[in-house]
């Protein structure tokens, strides 16, 4: 029984919850001031989620994302909170030639490199839908941010020449069926 009505009126029952919660937190912090793993650094994660194309990836954040599923989950929600459309999984599993997914109303397809070695990303923008300006893809700490050109006749097309820096990684992440892809 928490209440002891004989001193000073009925117990302020409502305060019991927060008192216990606070004591439990203080107690566990006192016993274990540096928990392992350390708490997620939300500020760093948010900076990662808001990265612009060309910004470098913070190495410790990338490692945390590789190792910690909770961190990936939080990052996914941070990205989704700011994105116009977001999908954590390919619509259909990748087949031999293409990985396709619907992200919101946008159909996103990665055409793997053919004979010329050039892979292509095609985003279908339906009439009336706003055109996304950027694409983010995250997969186990590997991360890609691409600025998208304006759509031509309802299609945004992006080509990845094998020689261009970073394009091999971008194609690898985009082709991963369990990568999170968001359009902003």
């Amino acid at each position: 029984m928490i209440a002891n009505p004989s001193d000073g009126g009925p117990a302020p029952a409502a305060d019991v919850e927060s008192q216990l919660l606070a004591e439990a937190v203080i107690d566990s912090l006192a016993r274990n001031p540096a928990p392992n793993p350390p708490p997620l650094d939300h500020a760093a994660l948010w900076r990662h989620a808001r990265r612009r194309a060309g910004d470098v990836v913070d190495l410790s954040t990338a490692r945390r994302l590789r190792e910690d599923p909770v961190a990936r989950n939080v990052l996914g929600r941070m990205i989704a909170a700011r994105a116009m459309a977001c999908s954590p999984m390919a619509y259909a599993a990748a087949d031999a030639t293409a990985a396709t997914r619907m992200i919101g109303v946008y159909a996103v397809e990665l055409l793997p490199a053919g004979d010329d070695g050039i892979a292509a990303l095609v985003i279908e923008v339906p009439a009336g839908a706003p055109a996304p300006a950027a694409l983010r893809a995250e997969w186990l700490g590997a991360s890609v941010v691409l600025d998208l050109p304006p759509p031509q006749e309802g299609l945004i097309e992006l080509f990845f020449a094998p020689a261009a820096p970073g394009s091999a990684e971008a194609v690898a992440v985009l082709g991963e069926p369990t990568a999170l892809i968001a359009l902003e």
């Binding site: 927060s18 606070a22 203080i26």
Partner: peptide, 20 residues
């Protein structure tokens, strides 16, 4: 709460207020 407290360096008084 304890994550937020650690990240922000909150003391016991502030932790109580955050819990409340």
């Amino acid at each position: 709460i304890s994550d937020v407290a650690l990240l922000r360096g909150l003391g016991a008084v502030r932790i109580r207020r955050l819990a409340a």
